[in-house]
Design a protein around this nucleic acid. Sequence first.
DNA 1: CGCGATTTGTGCACGTCTTCACAAGCGCCT
DNA 2: AGGCGCTTGTGAAGACGTGCACAAATCGCG
Lengths: 256, 256
Amino acid sequence: MSQHRHPGAPGRAGAVPTLPDLPEATVARLPEYLRALHNLADAGHETVSSEGLSAAAGVNSAKLRKDLSHLGSYGTRGVGYDVALLIEQIEYVLGLTQRRAVALVGVGNLGHALAGYDGFASRGFRIAALLDADPSRVGEEINGLVVRHVDDLPTVAAEESLAIGVIATPAAAAQQVADQLVAVGVTSILNFAPCVLSVPEGVDVRKVDLAIELQILSFHEHRKASLTALPATGGTALTALPGGFAATDTQEAIGT
Amino acid sequence: MSQHRHPGAPGRAGAVPTLPDLPEATVARLPEYLRALHNLADAGHETVSSEGLSAAAGVNSAKLRKDLSHLGSYGTRGVGYDVALLIEQIEYVLGLTQRRAVALVGVGNLGHALAGYDGFASRGFRIAALLDADPSRVGEEINGLVVRHVDDLPTVAAEESLAIGVIATPAAAAQQVADQLVAVGVTSILNFAPCVLSVPEGVDVRKVDLAIELQILSFHEHRKASLTALPATGGTALTALPGGFAATDTQEAIGT
DNA sequence: CGCGATTTGTGCACGTCTTCACAAGCGCCT
DNA sequence: AGGCGCTTGTGAAGACGTGCACAAATCGCG
């Protein structure tokens, strides 16, 4: 159990790609670690302790160590983790060593924003095509890409190796678009439309619903409000401790 | 244990607001149930079984029943749930009976889209103000609202009862904006900037990072690809079962 | 070379979430 | 009224995720 490193990662010369099957919760945090690591690297740090990295990523340090231990044993006792090596490892595990092509369907309000969002490009993705069902939108140029009709999907898929699709259409159109994406071989879908998609087995769907996030916050607001009404204490029950900000002030590497 | 309904909900004539403290996982699903219920109501359904509702919301029916049981005992054995009543209950618990005012800071690419997103308005929220730090953006009118300078936050907070803030700025500005929001009394923040925020105790932060979602999908792509490479079976290992779409075809009420 | 300071990696216990399976309850039909 | 079929609500078990606390490992220094 001492040092089991996973093959296929550093010298990726066709080695056997034995991906450790990570817990979902860990996978969901890896991108956050990766972002924090890039910040640290930009700030000139060569190594970082689990304490420092966990603070920058906003998690518990024990959790971070356990997460990273699932990748293998990178990191030196008494020293910390090598920033560059860890970046390489996480990017490998996340499959970011190749720049994945993404098809974005639905160039409405949100689609426009996504098309212009440089966070995709800067983190390993390339928007390969913009598609829309509305003929009046076809031909429009956004950020250097021309909007094509969604029925051109097969053509697009033939040009590019499409694995990921993003749906930013109204809910009514989402299922049909999903079917079209699946038909051309897309096996991962990021869905911004507020509806449930049914897809064949083997296709992954992640959903982002902006209104849902607000509703969750609303619940906590409601709860907080109902708490202040109850207890015998005066009024300023939850206006935070007087002096201090709670979280980790180890955000050294955030600024730019 | 038979029928414990929670006071303060139906006849909300100042009754004691005893919010049951729901599990976080349940809270996160309630908005999804609510959306499905609205669809069912629009389609004319008066009642719905846990089976039907869970299918429309894309979850396990046992999970749905347990979730709803946390709210109290609405629903009739042998019949199902009264759609209208359940909507009322969930909206009450989520604190959506009042239309909450939201301040949106950062009117860039994403901020524009959010300002124009009608999903907020249709689900209980009202964008009360658009703010930006860039003077050249101040004064611009978006969707009937004029962009004001972020330093006007105190004024805005004085006009409106602000509890929720949305941050759609670049990462470098997010912490400062969060501080300003907290300073004027905001206790819930939805953060779209890719960074960790430190806030005082009692303030809730939820984060949405579009790139992270893609990276999680990328991991699963990577894993799927490495799986097809390994097993002795031919090639079409994961191209789904021949005939059938996996999920719940009980999406009757989705279309519109 | 040995020792102390430091930090990783992990066994273990705990809490939360999920899922099954079934008793209790309700309505309808005869 | 009684019985039957259907559906909710929930106990219990298992899976999963979290966090503590500490042994093992490494570095630097005298």
